[in-house]
Design a protein around this nucleic acid. Sequence first.
DNA 1: ACTGGCACTCCTGGACACGGAGTGCCAGAC
DNA 2: GTCTGGCACTCCGTGTCCAGGAGTGCCAGT
Lengths: 338, 338
Amino acid sequence: MDDRKLEVLRAIVEDYVATQEPVGSKAVAQRHSLGVSAATVRNDMAYLEEAGYIQQPHTSAGRIPTAKGYRLFVDRLGKIKPLSAAERRAVHRFLSEAIDLDDVVTRTVRLLAQLTHQVAVVQYPSLNRSSVRHLELVSLTPTRLMLVMITDTGRVEQRYVEVPAELTEDDVLDLRRLVNEQLQGKALADAPRIIDGLAGLARPELRATASALARVLLESVVARTEERVAVAGAANLTRNGNFFAGSLRPILEALEEEVVLMQLLGRADSNALLTVRIGDENEVADFREATVVTAGYGPGSVVGHMGVLGPTRMDYPGTIAAVRAVARYVSEILEQNR
Amino acid sequence: MDDRKLEVLRAIVEDYVATQEPVGSKAVAQRHSLGVSAATVRNDMAYLEEAGYIQQPHTSAGRIPTAKGYRLFVDRLGKIKPLSAAERRAVHRFLSEAIDLDDVVTRTVRLLAQLTHQVAVVQYPSLNRSSVRHLELVSLTPTRLMLVMITDTGRVEQRYVEVPAELTEDDVLDLRRLVNEQLQGKALADAPRIIDGLAGLARPELRATASALARVLLESVVARTEERVAVAGAANLTRNGNFFAGSLRPILEALEEEVVLMQLLGRADSNALLTVRIGDENEVADFREATVVTAGYGPGSVVGHMGVLGPTRMDYPGTIAAVRAVARYVSEILEQNR
DNA sequence: ACTGGCACTCCTGGACACGGAGTGCCAGAC
DNA sequence: GTCTGGCACTCCGTGTCCAGGAGTGCCAGT
């Protein structure tokens, strides 16, 4: 594959992304100083089409890149454009004003949507990769407790616990001390084992209560596999006629399904720094015509993912740079709050 | 205004809502057994148009209701259709499975969207109409606390507090006792006054710390005017060509603006049980072609609002019934958890 | 006060022609 | 061998025209 052919592909990708219209040989020869005529470009285009990098919507139209073409562009041709200093400062300032984890996530997702002009998705720090910072028991009535769990990422989970016997204030303090002694600092992934033995460690008369508490801890806090996700920028789906091929309907529906969004952000085990899934590289059927750029974030290790969703004809260098930068800043913030 | 004329208006509203096409005199005369001919209906229609209740998209088309027409329909003609027993059971079951307040809100907003096939909006219980159930202090480092506030509606707010001096465990317990003694059960609206005196009540060596704590309480928990809102069912905006007149763009954008959504749900002081704002009765410019049906909810008194947003040509009896029913069930649930 | 009839208006959809943009290919130049 | 200019061809998008259909307003008659 010729160097010039690659240049032609780059030209097609860039122009198509910019204008959103099929680009013809003449335009390529003129706007990008390749030093050859349109006829020569036509020959290269015929080759690129044969090889599957570009395609023609109809016989007498210009060419548009295929998913394979974008893939090549991303892998070998696109140079990531770092954010400007002003943008970086703005990102930093905006995120550091966050008052708690919820706020960090909310601000992040808005920021991503605004920077990339696309739909942004941010996963809350995954519970099963966090560890316990503190457990709190609040007595609401003598037989009703509220259990509050705070993780090292700042996430707060709360549950009600009905207990079988009336508790005194001291009982509550006892239980509180017990669960914190056992679980503080422990990874949630290791917690089930510890929780199993919890009831056995309590004073005999508190056994029944401790086991009710253990059940709630296990069932609804630790074993909870569902993940929370924040979305912003849905309005960007309608940008300059993006009008996502068919209708927006399926996309909008998918964006309200946590399960789908989690798939979108990629199987939880992917630890890659940054992933770009173009068109049908995507597992979710509704997004076969979209590109998803995702990055992991977290203090040290990855505790969640964030990403943006856009048309395959997106500004790859800019989008990739934005996602990467935001993921880094968020990681820094979590690091500081640890 | 004739009785029959009202019947003609009802027929036009019902048929237009069902078919989404202008309805002609012939259709009205046939489908609704009025016992008169099409020509007579035409005369009535001319009157209704003159009076501003209906209008013609173009000369030789059928009629469609105006906002004024819908208003009359809602006020005098529409009989609210209560939900079926099966629907009521489903609503009840789905909502009672909620595990905490966040879950209640999330489930509510989804339920509303699904029942009405429209965009649903639910405000989290407003902080300044709640009261303090419990305040918790967690010591993260000797100079750093986490403050957790739980309200009577189940809402949980958390903030970090940097304190000027190192604290012992006993210090933290002392402070915890102090703030709870002072604030537990108090309405947040009354809290600022109490918080002001807080530092004065602490042991002398804890004064500085207590006043740092008081500052956070006041500034970022109590005085916080921003409200949280949940949205669902945006995909319904694309239902059978709803395609909201112009483009979805402004609507989708508005749905991501908390401020706009709060306006949508109505000025906070409105205590009406159920409100229907049709077309330009709406204050928000982007929603001049929409109808918003809202209801207040809360245990006893109103602590928040919920509602749905749809095209002016919506199924009013069904929508009103759904919003009212869901608001009631949510109120019941909050009541139980109090 | 209601009805049937009639002329009129205006939208909708299909058919058709035409200009423009872009291609593929070929013969010739370097 | 590689590139270039030229030419015929294809196909889309637009505009125009026309016929059909739906619905109205009005009038005279019951």
